[in-house]
Design a protein around this nucleic acid. Structure first.
Lengths: 120, 120
DNA sequence: GAAAGTAGTTTCCTTTTGGATACTATGTAT
DNA sequence: ATACATAGTATCCAAAAGGAAACTACTTTC
């Protein structure tokens, strides 16, 4: 009777799915949330600061992820004309709109860890 | 003056970062949110239903992602003893706790798309 | 008995992602 | 002049992720 029928064919679902894809493509990767989370704590950090703060990341990935975040206006990059030229990375106002999602994810992860300990 | 100092070294931050890693490792991949989102809409779907609903996914990925989600108790898999043996996939109560995160992500993605159109 | 529907698995291949290492370029302190 | 700090880039490589197509196995319908 039913064949090729689709729930997700409604315009609302299509938009939703597209939105999730958009968000994920911007936020995907191993380090984005860590970098954003760190910048939300200590605003205005230099490249080397971030390299120390984000545990395990290397220069190549940090550089690449920061560039991605900057392109998407989630992080700002300001070159200071100090003598040993420094760069200040900071989260933008727009980047801050991700705070609820990052918090939600962190809290969910904490709850998940607890639930595993309980069921074991 | 300051060297090797770390903001992220506080126990609270460590736990938070770990939690984000946990959550991401469970939810990473191209299809998890789409599958979960679909199952949140139409509860109880068969393998072939999902294959039709989740646009673009193939059998290999669907099978693998469903297995991952089942292992992490986000999705239940029930074999029905109907004549052409069918399987019912459904989101678990635990899986439903992800609804706010998925909604948050979808809404953020929608807002992001709008903001791009405005700035262009 | 051939086709089509159920639910997958297997194999092979390409792309993407990420890491280690070395290097550039500039400036400061010793 | 040597060592260390700034901020990266470039290169090479390994591993992970993902896709296409073919195949298994069982049942029902035409």
């Amino acid at each position: 009777m039913k064949k090729k029928a689709e729930i997700n064919n409604t315009p609302i679902c299509q938009v939703r799915m597209q939105a999730i894809s958009d968000a994920m493509s911007i936020l995907s990767g191993k380090w984005k949330f860590h970098i954003l989370g760190t910048l939300m704590e200590g605003s205005k950090l230099g490249f080397m600061d971030l390299l120390r703060e984000v545990d395990g990341i290397g220069t190549k990935m940090l550089s690449k992820e920061l560039r991605d975040l900057e392109i998407n206006h989630l992080v700002s990059r300001t070159v200071m004309d100090t003598k040993p030229i420094t760069v200040e990375y900071a989260i933008t106002e727009y980047g801050k709109t991700l705070a609820p999602i990052i918090d939600g994810l962190a809290n969910w992860g904490i709850a998940y860890r607890k639930s595993i300990l309980n069921t074991k």
